[in-house]
Design a protein around this nucleic acid. Sequence first.
DNA 1: CAGTGTATTGGGAGCGCTCCCAAGACCGGG
DNA 2: CCCGGTCTTGGGAGCGCTCCCAATACACTG
Lengths: 344, 344
Amino acid sequence: MAAARVRNGGRPTLEEVAARAGVGRGTASRVINGSPRVSEATREAVEAAVAELGYVPNRAARALAGNRTDAIALVVPEPETRFFAEPYFSAIVRGVGAALADTDMQLLLTLAGNDRERRRLAQYLTAHRVDGVLLVAVHADDPLPELLEQLGMPCVISGARHANEPLASVDSDNFDGARAAVEHLITRGRRSVATITGRLEVYGAQRRLDGYRAALAAAGLPPDERLIAPADFTEEGGARAMRELLARRPHLDAVFAASDVMAAGARQVLREADRRIPEDVALIGFDDSVVARHMHPALTSVRQPIEEMGRRMAQLLLEEIAGRVGEERPTVVLPTELVVRDSS
Amino acid sequence: MAAARVRNGGRPTLEEVAARAGVGRGTASRVINGSPRVSEATREAVEAAVAELGYVPNRAARALAGNRTDAIALVVPEPETRFFAEPYFSAIVRGVGAALADTDMQLLLTLAGNDRERRRLAQYLTAHRVDGVLLVAVHADDPLPELLEQLGMPCVISGARHANEPLASVDSDNFDGARAAVEHLITRGRRSVATITGRLEVYGAQRRLDGYRAALAAAGLPPDERLIAPADFTEEGGARAMRELLARRPHLDAVFAASDVMAAGARQVLREADRRIPEDVALIGFDDSVVARHMHPALTSVRQPIEEMGRRMAQLLLEEIAGRVGEERPTVVLPTELVVRDSS
DNA sequence: CAGTGTATTGGGAGCGCTCCCAAGACCGGG
DNA sequence: CCCGGTCTTGGGAGCGCTCCCAATACACTG
C-alpha cells in the first residue's frame, strides 16, 4: 500500500510556522528569506518556530511563486566519452558540489545525447526552470550555448572554444602547462623534442601546441614541423603518431604528448622500438590521470586543477544568476602544475 | 540588465493550450497526462495546440499541485573517495541517465558529506520532495537508508550491505566473479593461490573472499588461512598484504586481489622481490579499471557491469515509485566477466 | 417514454509560497 | 497636539498545475 497522501508530505508549512510564532505569513517569509525589515524579537520568534517544527521550505511552491528554482543544471554531452572518462567528470562534479554546498542550490545532471536532442534540451532547460547551466566539453560547433544565450539563460562553459570566447568560461592554462613541460625537457638536456597533439579543432589542443612552440622558441631551438604529429586524444592515435615521428625523426630524444592516454599509446610504440624511457626518449603527458601514475615508468604529466575548475564554474554561474553587472563575460584561466615522475 | 520578469518565463501555460485547442483546462491536462478518458478528436486538437505553442509543462506547478516532483536524487557519500573514483561514478551516472532518458524524470546529484550532514540530508530530501533516492556506496552503519525508510521514501542501494539486505539493491556477483577468477588460475596450473581481500566489513569484499574459498574447495585444494591477507582497497594496503604473503608463503604462484588498485600495490612488491608476472606469480584484480588496462603486464581482472547496475538501479527505483506491490524488496545480482590479459 | 448508466467535459478549489499593498505603530518637528 | 515620515506587519492575490465534482450528452433497457 502506498502511504495515504498527506498535504505537503506531512511537513509543516510556512503558515504553520507563522501561527506558531504568532505572526503573519508574510512576516515569517521575510525572516526565512533574511529580509532586514523585521524586528529582532519577531525574527527570534520565527526562528524558534522553524527549529521546533523542523520547517524546510517547499521548493516547488517557492519555485512557482518566485519564478526561480534554486537549481542549476550540469549538462554533459554523453557521446563525448573523452570527457565523461576519468578524471574529468567526477572531479568537476566534486568541485561544483563543493561550491554549491553552502548555497541551497540544487545540482541537476543532464546527459545530452545527439545534436537534435541538444536543441530540444534548451527548451527543456527553460521550461524546467533551472536558474543557470553549466556546460562541460562543448564543441566549437555545438548549438547549445547560443541557444541558451538567446533564451537569456545564465551559462558557464568549461574550456573556451576559441580565442575570443563570448561566454563565461573557466579553463586551465593549456598554453603554459605545455610550455612548462617542454621547458622542463629542454632543461634536462633534450634537444630534439617532438609533440603529439590532440584534435586541433579543440582550442585547448591548439593552445598546448602553441605552448610547445613557445618553449622551443624561448630556448632558441629551431622549429621543426616534422617533430609535430597530430592525433586525436586516443591511445591508438598516440601510437600512430609516435610511429610517424620515429620514422621521420629517428633521433628524437623527447616527446610531449597532449594527453596521458596518447602518451600511453606512444610508450607502447617506443617500447616496441626498443627505446628506453627516459634514457633514450623522455616522455611527458597531460592530465595527470590515473594512467600516468600507473604507467611504467610512471609518467611525468601536467596536472590540471579540475576540481577547482568545477568550483569556479559554479561560483561564476551563481554570480551571473545573482545578476552580475553585464560587463564583458569573465574568463577564468587556472594554472597547471607539472608533476615530475620517472619518464622524464 | 536582467530581463524583465515575465509570467512563466514567457512560456505558454496549460490554460493557453486549452484555449487554443478550444477545450477546458481539465481536458487539456488529461490529454497531456495521457488519460484514456478523452475522445480521439479532442486529443488531436490538444496535441496540435501543444505542438504549435511549443508547450512544456511547468515542473514547479506540477510538483506543487501533484505532490510529486518527477525527480530522483543520486546521493554520493563524498568522503568515500573509493567510490567517487574511476570508474564507478561516471559509469553509474551513465547507466542511471540512460534509464531515465525516456522518462521525464530528472536526476538530482547530492554529495553527502559527513554523518551529521547525512542525517539532515534525509529531511532535506523529503522537503525537497524528490520521488526517490539512489544510494551508492553506503556503509553498513550508515543511518541514511533507515531514515529514508522511515520517511517512506523509495530507495535503491548499490551493493547489498549484508546477506539479508532489507532494501532494494543492485549488486554485481562478487562471489562468482572471485570464484571464476580463482578457478581460472587453478585451471592454468596454479596450485598455491593467495588472495588479498578488501575491508571485510564491506559485504562485497566478504563475498569475494567466499568465492575464493569456494573455488579452492571445488578444485579439491586444501584451504590455507595463511594465503589470505586482509587489506583495505588501497594501493599501499595491497602492497603491505603482498609483503606479508611473500613472507608467510614464499612459494605461492598466484594472487587474486579483490581490487585492481590493490593488485597494483601487489605488483610493485612482486617486482621488487624479483618475481616475474605471470611466469613466477600470476596476478588477477577486480574492477577492470583503467589501471588494469595500463598496468605492465596488462592485468587480468573481473569486470563488473557498472553501467548496467546504474540502469537497473534506476529502473528498480522507478518501479518502486510507481508503487510496486509491496512484496519483499527485490535484489538484483548481475553477472561479472573475467577479462583475461597478460598477468595470468 | 422514463430511467439508468456511461463517456466526456468544464472549471472550482486548492497546493505552499512570494510579492506587494495598505494599515498600524511609533517617532519627532513644528 | 497634529502631521508627515519611517519601520513593521498582516494578508490578499496570484504562480500554473492536478484533482475531483458536477454537468452535459448520449445510448440503452424495460
